[in-house]
Design a protein around this nucleic acid. Structure first.
Lengths: 123, 123
DNA sequence: TAGAAACCTGACGTTGACGTCAGAGATAGC
DNA sequence: GCTATCTCTGACGTCAACGTCAGGTTTCTA
């Protein structure tokens, strides 16, 4: 498929896809005239890249771990980094859950205060 | 307390604390000579700010919601935004959990492949 | 066979959350 | 009182992940 279709199917901009290629994260065949042609599995690849970005993993780290996602093999140091990223993701989840509780408390308190007219005691 | 102590106790740089003040997120008394003096509760405030930042909430949004965290009262529009941020946090958590599963699969597969010498079939 | 729409390669612009440096005043320990 | 450390205010630098624009080529559709 061409870049526009991949962009639409992944909800990622064309510019971002070119950027991923620049970073070595996403390869593409080229047509005779030089246009990028992507295979079906590029869709999954792009989603994976986005997930890893969303987890705060840098493009260089992603670049390092992608081959082992594809081949299923990782050297011990890479594996160690993967475990490091894993625990960082776990930590992020925990922190977000804390944040969620804080937000819930604020929302609950503020809703009540707004309906009763009585503000909560400041913490 | 002075800025250095607050920085140390919150593991946030001095520069970041000044930045928070610039953004209106963190107020400070001033000594006669102009040095910032923080009350005890500044520690909690800074942690809250960091949590909200980590949740991907912009400083302007934080600025908007902080007063209502303090007073416990929020206008309906602010409340709506709070709920919006809440659901965005929920979504982030879900995505991170997906990412975690992906990472686990990669780690498990790569570990096995490395010990057995047989790579996984590519997905 | 037009012409619109999609694609190409540079290359500079943007944004948020700080880092860093300069030059000067403030505080603390001896 | 001296000096090491801390703090102050600008102000410019940084970095990643793209956005955007220019100027030209390719592909699709009528």
């Amino acid at each position: 498929m061409r870049i526009g279709e991949l962009a639409e199917r992944t909800s990622v901009s064309v510019r971002a896809l070119r950027y991923y290629e620049e970073q070595g994260l996403l390869a593409a065949e080229r047509s005779g005239s030089g246009q990028r042609r992507y295979a079906e599995n590029a869709v999954g690849r792009v989603r994976l890249i986005q997930q890893l970005y969303a987890a705060g993993i840098s493009s260089t780290s992603i670049l390092e771990m992608l081959p082992c996602v594809v081949t299923g093999v990782a050297a011990p140091e890479v594996l160690a980094k993967l475990r490091g990223h894993r625990s960082s993701v776990v930590k992020q989840i925990e922190e977000l859950q804390e944040t969620l509780q804080q937000l819930d408390a604020v929302i609950a308190g503020a809703t009540k205060a707004y309906t009763t007219g009585v503000p909560c005691p400041p913490s």
